[in-house]
Lab assay of single mutants.
Amino acid sequence: YQDQEQRILKFLEELGEGKATTAHDLSGKLGTPKKEINRVLYSLAKKGKLQKEAGTPPLWKIAVS
């Protein structure tokens, strides 16, 4: 689980600052079920590491501290 968090954070960091992506996109790029990706995304957002942008589907990006 920790491993997934690292992979997602790394992927988003590599996208570049301010760039956002969807759970669907992450799921495809990382070869992980979207349900699992979503769980990790919401967990990271709760920890303040990610920012969720409203929309359908929601967009995710690295939180700027």
Rank of each mutant, 00 (worst) to 15 (best):
E17V: 11
T21C: 15
A63P: 13
K10R: 13
G31A: 12
L9Q: 04
L26T: 01
K35P: 11
D25T: 09
L9P: 01
T56C: 15
G31V: 06
I62T: 07
T56I: 08
L50E: 00
T32R: 15
T21Y: 07
A45E: 14
E53M: 14
L50P: 00
L41P: 01
I8H: 00
A63S: 12
L9Y: 07
E13C: 06
N38S: 05
E5R: 03
V64C: 15
Q51C: 11
Q51H: 14
V64T: 10
T21H: 06
K34S: 09
K47E: 10
E53C: 10
V40G: 08
A54W: 06
I8K: 01
L41C: 04
N38I: 02
L44C: 03
L12I: 14
Q51W: 06
Q2W: 06
R39P: 05
E13H: 08
G16F: 01
E5V: 06
L50S: 02
S65R: 08
T21W: 12
A20W: 10
I62H: 06
Q2P: 05
Q51I: 15
T56W: 05
A45H: 08
L50I: 14
P58N: 07
S65P: 15
E5I: 03
K46M: 10
E13P: 01
V40E: 03
G16W: 01
E14I: 06
K10V: 04
Q4Y: 07
L59A: 10
Q6P: 05
V40T: 11
W60F: 05
L26P: 00
P57L: 04
T21I: 14
L9A: 02
D3Q: 06
W60P: 01
S43A: 13
E36F: 15
P58Y: 03
Q2E: 04
K47H: 07
D3I: 08
G18W: 03
K52I: 07
D3K: 04
L30T: 06
G55W: 02
D3C: 08
S27Q: 07
A45Y: 14
T21L: 13
N38Y: 09
L12T: 02
L12N: 00
A20Y: 11
K10F: 04
G16D: 06
Q51M: 13
Q2A: 05
G16M: 03
K46Y: 04
S43H: 10
V64K: 08
A54S: 14
E13K: 11
E53K: 15
A45Q: 10
S27M: 07
I62W: 03
K35N: 13
L59T: 11
E5T: 05
A23Q: 02
T22W: 00
K46L: 09
D25E: 13
Q51V: 15
T22R: 02
A23G: 03
G28E: 04
Q51N: 13
Q51F: 12
Y1M: 14
S65F: 05
Q4L: 15
K29G: 08
F11G: 04
E17H: 12
S65N: 08
L12W: 02
K61C: 04
Q6F: 06
V64H: 04
L30K: 00
L15Y: 06
I37N: 00
E13G: 13
K47A: 12
L15S: 07
G48E: 05
A63H: 10
G48W: 01
K34R: 14
K34I: 12
A20S: 14
L26D: 00
V64I: 08
T21E: 03
K29A: 14
E14Q: 14
I8N: 01
G18V: 04
L26R: 00
V64E: 15
V40H: 11
E5M: 03
S65G: 11
E36W: 08
F11E: 14
E36T: 15
G18A: 06
K29T: 09
S43G: 14
I62E: 03
K19I: 08
L41K: 00
A45P: 00
T21D: 02
F11R: 06
K19L: 06
K52H: 07
G31C: 12
D25Y: 15
P57T: 04
D3S: 08
E13S: 12
S65H: 04
Q51S: 13
L12G: 01
R39G: 07
E5Q: 07
K49P: 02
D25M: 13
A23M: 03
P58C: 08
I62Y: 04
Q2C: 07
A20K: 08
K47F: 03
T21V: 13
L26N: 00
A54V: 11
S27A: 14
E5D: 04
Q2H: 05
F11N: 03
L15W: 08
